[in-house]
Every structure is written in C-alpha cells, then in structure tokens.
Amino acid sequence: MMREWDAVAQSVLAGNLLTSEEALAGLQTPDRDLLDLLAAAYRVRYYYYQNRVKLNYLVNAKSGYCPEDCHYCSQSRLSTAEIPKYHLLEASDIVARARHGIQLQAGTCCIVLSGRRPAAKELDVVAEAARILKAEHPGVKICACLGLLSEAEARQLKAAGVDRYNHNLNTAPDRYDEICSTHTYEDRVHTVGSVQSAGISPCSGVIIGMGETPDDIVRMIDELRRLNVDSVPVNFLLPIPGTPLAERPLSMTPTWVLKVLSVFRLGLPDKEIRISAGREVHLRSLQPMALYAANALFVSDYLTEPGQDAALDWAMIEDLGFEIEPLGTPMGPVPARA
C-alpha cells in the first residue's frame, strides 16, 4: 500500500488529477494503512508549502441576529444557542481585535459579519478597517467573510486592501437544501465568482460531519477544484446546543479526520488546506498529525466557540519541526525545488 499511495502522490505532482476512485479509496483506507496515505499527502504538501504553517485569526465583527437558517450555525435565526450577540463593531474595534491576532503570529486576519449580505454601511466600515490595518501592518493579509456579495461590492473591498474573501460551499450541491433553505448553493457559487472577477483571492471550504457520504466528500473536492479557489478551510461539525444539528452524534474518529484531510490535499494539491472548526474536538491528541496534510489553521478562538490556546498551537508546530509562516509571506504555494 505504501508504494501505491506514493505512486498517487507522484502522479499528482506530475500534474494529474486525483481520480474519484483514488479519492474514495483514500477515504476508505484501513486504519492500518493510514500512515501510508498521510505520507503521500505530506509529500505533496511539502512540495508546495514545505514545513510552513499559516496562522489565520478570526475577528467576529458582528455576532448573531442572522436571518438565514443554516442548520449548523449558532448565529442563525433557528438557533437558540447562548452566544454573544452584538451589531457591527466600529472600525477601530475591528482593528484592535485584528492587532491581537497579529500578536498571536497570525499572518491572515479574517473579518467576519453574520447576516445574509452586508449593508452599504457595513461594507464601508469593513473597508475602513482594512485600510487602517494595511497602513499599520502592510504585510498582514486581510480576509473578509460578509455573506453574499456582488462584484461591485467585492471591488470596493479590493480597493480597500482586502486580499481574500471567504464564502464556504459547506456541502455537496445536491445536499445543500438539507442544511439551508434561505439561500441556495448557486448563490454561494455566484459569490465565489464575484470575488474572483474583482481580483480577490477566493476562499471556500466545507463542513464535514453533517450526514454526507464519502461520495459527497469527493463531489465537494471536485466542486472546489472546478471553482479554482485558493484556500480551503475544512471544518468538522461542532453540534452546538440550540442548533438543528445539536443532536448529531460525535461519531468522527481522529483517523477519519486525517483521511479526509489527506484526500483534500491530494485532490487539491497546491491549495491552502486549513484545519478549521472542530479540530480540537475530533482530532484530539492527533492534532499535530493533521499538519502533515494541511498547511494552515485558525489560531485561538472561532466565531462563537472556543479554540485551543495559541501557545499550544505554537508548541505543536515547533514540536513537529515545522515553522510558523512569517507576516508578509506572499499568499499561495512556493513549490520546493530541492
């Protein structure tokens, strides 16, 4: 099996696409062969990103009060979860929170608003915060996540210094209606296209653990490849009390999570793969091994749920012999030549 997965890695590095059959085989790999699969993923990861780990930091600039009904989300209109709720922060407060992320060695700060799409005033405030942050820290990468977006709105953010825009696909196309009814999968795809057209780097990812099949996961990878997104956050469902998915059992094992991340790496070889929400719960003691497939993670807390202490993340990276990507590093892969 080792030679087989090594051959798959070699094929991917030669420019061949991971086939659906290979992706399914990766997801169905027996645990005894997991290290062979992970080694193949690491070979590809190392070629494009060496041992660098990009740290991302979330700034929750508007929390709760969302009119959408995304079943997984603690901020949706269906949720009764006890979370902080507040309207849009001032630009100065957004910048202050982003500064904290930079102190935690995050090279990318992501400004997030709850809601269907940003109002004009909200867009102006985020743009102002981006301009201030860029003036103070030219090397920081700014990501925004504000909901559905038009190309004109994306161009406003681009002009203010926003480098990347996140809008997750979340699940496979034919399953989307099961997790949300207030907007469509096509709405999300349109937003990804809008930010690409405006010259902003597109970020779009998934949530694993909402009842999808292995075939669904393969379709997610195919869709992200088709849309040619640059960054892929891979979330693992946190069944938050008060949300429609609260009773979904925590059935994912750490080895399953590693298989998923390995297949995402092999299927999207040169993309930023970020282990995101749920890593602490589902990977547990195997968190460090995920970085053999993924090259990025969120440091500190998520939007409404606590994450691992930043010092533990730093230690995890150091213990692996990896290094935190320094502020100012260009986005995207820098293929190894040795």
Rank of each mutant, 00 (worst) to 15 (best):
C66G: 08
R117Q: 14
L291V: 01
M1R: 11
L113Y: 10
R248A: 09
H71P: 00
T255V: 14
Q156D: 10
L169R: 11
P249R: 14
Y48A: 06
G147E: 01
S150C: 03
S114D: 03
D124H: 05
Q103A: 13
N168R: 06
M316Y: 09
V44I: 07
E90Q: 14
L157S: 08
A290F: 09
R43E: 11
D301T: 05
N168G: 07
L149I: 14
E82L: 06
A152I: 00
T213M: 08
P249E: 11
I179D: 04
T182C: 06
S201A: 11
Y49P: 00
G107L: 03
E323D: 12
D6Q: 15
A293P: 11
E280H: 00
E22D: 15
A119H: 14
L286Y: 14
S285I: 10
K54Y: 12
A14F: 01
R225Y: 05
E82F: 01
A277H: 03
D6P: 00
P214N: 15
D313L: 03
L27T: 12
N60R: 03
R164M: 04
L261M: 13
A152W: 00
A154R: 11
L327F: 06
H282G: 08
I102V: 04
Y185R: 12
S20Y: 00
S63N: 04
I317E: 09
A9P: 07
N168I: 05
R164W: 07
P326L: 07
G199I: 01
L303W: 08
A311V: 13
L224R: 10
A91Y: 11
W5N: 06
A277T: 12
A198W: 04
L303P: 10
Y165M: 07
D216H: 15
G242C: 03
P288C: 06
S181P: 01
T182D: 05
V263M: 10
I111K: 01
D31I: 01
P288T: 07
E223C: 10
A277K: 04
L320R: 13
L268Q: 09
V95G: 05
V125S: 03
M252D: 05
I179E: 07
S150R: 02
A338S: 14
R219M: 01
A296H: 14
A159N: 11
E90N: 13
A311M: 12
Q10P: 00
I317V: 15
E212I: 04
D31K: 02
L227I: 03
R32A: 15
L13E: 10
A127Q: 12
P249W: 10
Q196H: 09
A310D: 11
V112M: 05
M2T: 13
Y292G: 10
M220R: 09
H137C: 10
P233F: 02
P326Y: 09
P306W: 05
Q196F: 01
A7M: 13
V140E: 03
A294M: 05
D177S: 14
E90D: 15
E21I: 05
T19K: 12
A23I: 05
A135M: 04
M2L: 15
M252K: 10
T329R: 12
A106T: 06
